[in-house]
Nucleic acid binder design. Structure first.
Lengths: 223, 223
DNA sequence: CTGGATCCTCAACGATACTG
DNA sequence: CAGTATCGTTGAGGATCCAG
C-alpha cells in the first residue's frame, strides 16, 4: 500500500487519504473561499514550506480536487488555483470539522494568527445558513487582527467573502472576548464595554449580527 | 509551533491538528463504533505500527477524546479504550467525510479489506437517519468479506452494530457490485441475478433494505 | 497472552537557497 | 512569481523484545 493509503474499502479511509496529509485541509479551506494564486496560498498558510505546498497542489490536482490555470498579465505571470466541484462537495464536511474545532476555542494560543480564509470560513460556519433579515440588505465588515472579511445579508441568504467592502453598514473589529460574544456568553452591551468589539457605523445592528453568527461552546475544555 | 500545530486561530485548523495525524480518523471511527481493547484496535487497523497506535492513543487521551481503563479478567488483563462525549461530537463530521469519500468508491482497490468498523460506519452513514419501518422490528445481518454487522430497524430508528445477530430476518452477503445496489444503479432483481448480493431469509425485505441504506455516486470518478 | 516499549530504516516534512 | 533543489530533522513502518 502506498504510504498515504490505508488499505481499507471505507469512505472515511478514502477521505483520510486526501485530508490526512499535513496542510491539505487548510489548503482546501483557502481554495473554497475563492480561487487563489500560489503566492496567496503561501501567504495565507504561515509556516508551510514552499515545496510542501507545491507537492500538495500536485496531489490535489491528481485527485481531481484542484485545477490550475496560467494567467499572464502585464506584471508577470501567475497561476490561479481553483477548487473543483468535487472539492466543493467537501464543504459540508469541512464545515462540520470547523464547527467541532471551534467549539473548544477560547482565545488564540501564543503566536496564533487569524488569516482571511480562517475568518471567512469561521463566519460561514457561524452563519450556518441562518438568515434573519427579510428587510433591506445589510453589509458588515469584520476585522480580526490583520484579517478582513465582509458579510452581505440579502433576503434570506448570508454571503461571506474575504476582504473589504466599500459601503459597510457596520464595521465590527474583534477584540479579546469576541469569541465569547459569538457564544452568547457575553451580551452586546458587555462586549462593547469590555472591548470585545469596537464598532463603526450603525451600532444597533450588533444585536442582529450576534443573532446571525453563533459559535457554540463545548462543555469540555481541552485547549 | 509544535509540529502538529498550524499557528492559526481557526476551528478547522484545530480539528486538523487532531485528525490530520496519520491513522487518527480511523482510530476514532473504530472507537465510535464501540469500546475496544488495544489488540482489537491493532487488528482492526491492518498496517498500523504498534508504536504508532500507542502514540495516537496517548495523544487522543491528552486531547480528551479517549479514555482508557484497565480491566482484569480471569484470562489476563486488558485495557479498554473508549470515545469520550467530546469525541462523539465528532461523529457528524466524520460521517460527512465518510459520505464524501464513499461517493467515489466503486470496487475495492487491490488488497483493500473491509473491517467490521468500516462496515458499521458505512452502513450508519448510508442509513443517514432514514427509517421506513413503522411496523414490526426487522433485523438484518450484513457480511462483506470477513466483516459482519447487524442492523436493527425499530420503529423510526436504525441501529447498526458490529458482529452477528442470533435471529436475523434477512442475511445479506455483499458480492462484487453491492456498491452499485446501494447507489441505485443496480435494482434488487439484477443484484440477486448478478451475485451482487446473496440472501438468506426473507428475500422480500431486500427492497426495504435498499430503500434504507443508500450511498450516492458522485459524478466525478477519481479512483 | 495482552499491552506496549525499543531499535532501526526510510519516507515525509521543514527551512532555506536558488532558478526559469 | 512560481516553483525546484538540497539538506537536516522528524515521524512512520516493521520487526523484535519485554513486562505483567
Amino acid at each position: 500500500m502506498r504510504s498515504r493509503e490505508y488499505g481499507q474499502f471505507c469512505g472515511l479511509a478514502r477521505a483520510a487519504e486526501v485530508l490526512g496529509q499535513r496542510w491539505t485541509m487548510l489548503i482546501l479551506r483557502d481554495l473554497l473561499v475563492g480561487p487563489r494564486r500560489y503566492s496567496d496560498l503561501l501567504a495565507g498558510l504561515p509556516g508551510i514550506a514552499t515545496n510542501v505546498l507545491a507537492a500538495r497542489l500536485k496531489e490535489l490536482e491528481a485527485d481531481g480536487l484542484v485545477t490550475c490555470e496560467l494567467q499572464t498579465g502585464n506584471s508577470g505571470r501567475s497561476v490561479i488555483y481553483r477548487a473543483t466541484p468535487r472539492a466543493e462537495e467537501l464543504a459540508p464536511a469541512l464545515d462540520a470539522l470547523g464547527r467541532w474545532g471551534a467549539a473548544t476555542m477560547r482565545e488564540p494560543r501564543e503566536g496564533e494568527v487569524v488569516t482571511d480564509a480562517a475568518l471567512v470560513a469561521g463566519l460561514r460556519v457561524a452563519a450556518g445558513g441562518r438568515a434573519r433579515r427579510p428587510g433591506r440588505d445589510v453589509v458588515y465588515v469584520i476585522r480580526s487582527g490583520a484579517a478582513v472579511a465582509h458579510a452581505t445579508m440579502r433576503g434570506t441568504t448570508v454571503e461571506v467573502e474575504a476582504g473589504e467592502h466599500p459601503e459597510p453598514d457596520l464595521v465590527v473589529v474583534a477584540g479579546p472576548g469576541f469569541r465569547d460574544l459569538l457564544a452568547g456568553v457575553l451580551d452586546a452591551d458587555a462586549a462593547i464595554e469590555s472591548g470585545a468589539v469596537e464598532l463603526t457605523g450603525d451600532a444597533s445592528l450588533l444585536t442582529e449580527f450576534t443573532a446571525t453568527f453563533r459559535v457554540p461552546y463545548s462543555e469540555t475544555v481541552t485547549f
